[in-house]
Nucleic acid binder design. Structure first.
Lengths: 232, 232
DNA sequence: TTTCGCGCAATGTGATCACAATTGACGCGG
DNA sequence: CCGCGTCAATTGTGATCACATTGCGCGAAA
């Protein structure tokens, strides 16, 4: 016997604070916690049906990843506000890191990865067709990180992860402002092709182009939003 | 009375978990917690004379910043090991971000900044002269982040912060292997001059050159270290 | 002397309580 | 009707306790 048969399943139940983290992360990315909104440990805990303890852990992590901000006077928590300045920096950083990750993933691509990417891309198209924002964002995230994870570059990967977490709320604004039109320009197919060919440079180009489209859409949306007062 | 005169100073006593964070951060950067060494919440708490609670918070933050790692099976904490792979990624990321920060800081430079930089640079030289590693690293960190903070680019700045936190332990290895020789090539003066001239491109070049020197020294040191078994 | 097994110590995690600071609302006085 | 002070509720923070799991060491058996 190798170890001791773990009942029937092998998955060791994720810790509570990890589930809370995942929940908050999802809530932030999908915009269920709108930018600028203040949150509190106890209210989140009550909402999730747990004690404030694991929420504290999850929140610390999200603050460190800049997915949440903490008022230095108040010590009160809030979702970061969307500013053109932040978006510009995020765009720049993504433009460095993500093509690099794609380039590193290219030599390691295999048929399993290609198949998974095609499935994810199909999911994206399906979501776009019916205008399902949540599914689109989930599938798009899955597509990109299927590639990035393949790079094996843990340090850069974690940077990309943090950047996506900060970008998430912006995407919601895009859809709120202009729907999903214009996002179907398919650099994803080019990325898949490049990976199939193990062509690092082409993969990097495809990802860079894909980012450029999305980030430009966000920039336009934020510029438009910034002129209005906060809507509540 | 405008508010209520806060005794004499204005600094509202940093929270315990922030002090613990600072302490751990310093311990990691200066190598007092050697790479690969396991740590525990309770032992750290006892060592710092506080309850495990603020240590948990600080550790969560450091884990999120990748300055500490957590074994997914054990759930046990340890300082990340130094690998050539990690160093390569850190070098790449620093090479993107830090020159950019310097470039953004250049237009905003003023005489106060220049003076502070000259003081920090003098501190570096003094530390190098007497071979004081801790002081050198502290002064070098201060020098760079005096510049970077001036950029006003919060997002990029936090990325740079995380990268330095991960680089810290490597630097200790450098000094342990080869002392401080070869690090006195003075790109810092060039950086100061560039900032005085508000020359963004020159500032970026100076910082990039400075990084290249240091990172190459680390690469050589790690390569040398990697061939030996862990020394305890 | 070596090896296996049992039990204790230590670990991370989560809950609950206590406390100081801040917020927000209610009510009183103008 | 408006302004302001007071008080209660809510906030983040830290400590302490309880618990399941893991690691390690001591001791017994061959």
């Amino acid at each position: 016997m190798e170890k001791a048969p773990r009942k029937t399943q092998d998955a060791p139940v994720p810790a509570m604070h990890d589930r809370v983290y995942a929940a908050l992360r999802d809530a932030l990315i999908t915009g269920r916690i709108p930018p600028g909104r203040g949150v509190s440990l106890r209210s989140l805990a009550a909402e999730l049906g747990v004690s404030p303890m694991p929420v504290r852990d999850a929140v610390r992590r999200l603050v460190a990843e800049r997915a949440l901000t903490i008022n230095p006077d108040n010590k009160r928590l809030s979702a970061p506000s969307l500013t053109a300045d932040r978006l510009e920096q995020l765009t720049l950083a993504r433009g460095w890191i993500e093509p690099e990750l794609a380039a590193r993933a290219a030599p390691k691509a295999d048929t399993d990865l290609i198949r998974a990417l095609e499935a994810a891309d199909a999911g994206i198209d399906a979501a776009l067709a019916v205008g399902d924002v949540d599914r689109y964002m989930a599938a798009n995230h899955a597509f990109h990180f299927l590639i990035y994870r393949r790079s094996g570059a843990e340090v850069l990967l974690s940077l990309a992860d943090s950047l996506w977490l900060q970008i998430g709320p912006f995407m919601r604004v895009v859809f709120g402002r202009m729907g999903t039109t214009g996002l179907d320009v398919d650099h994803h197919s080019q990325a898949i092709a490049a990976l199939r060919d193990r062509d690092a440079a082409a993969a990097a180009r495809a990802i860079a182009a894909d980012l450029a489209i999305g980030m430009e859409a966000m920039r336009a949306a934020v510029e438009q939003t910034g002129q209005e007062p906060p809507h509540d």
